[in-house]
Amino acid sequence: MHYLLTYRSLTYAQRAARILERAGVTGTLSRVPKDAAKRGCAYCVTVAPRHRDRALAVLRGAGLSPERVLLRHDDGTWEAVSP
């Protein structure tokens, strides 16, 4: 299980991933799964559940809050959660 912090723009997602890295939060940049992307291609930073709150706080502080936060379960299903 992990969280996907999603962005419509690759550039924003890249910046988010770099800011998290600088803050010591491990996150992986990738594309949003097709069935979870609301409007076609989108990008996300994947973080472990234990990093979620800190990641969101860091990103909020940098003015880079994600468009959505998705919880992806181990079986591939997902659900939108409140940031």
Binding site: R8, S9, L10, Y12, R39, G40, C41, A42, Y43
Partner: peptide
């Protein structure tokens, strides 16, 4: 642009 691909309009954000 590799973003918001299912809409006919260009993205409403830069740089895309």
């Amino acid at each position: 642009t590799g973003s918001v691909s299912d809409q006919a309009e260009m993205p409403d954000f830069l740089p895309d």
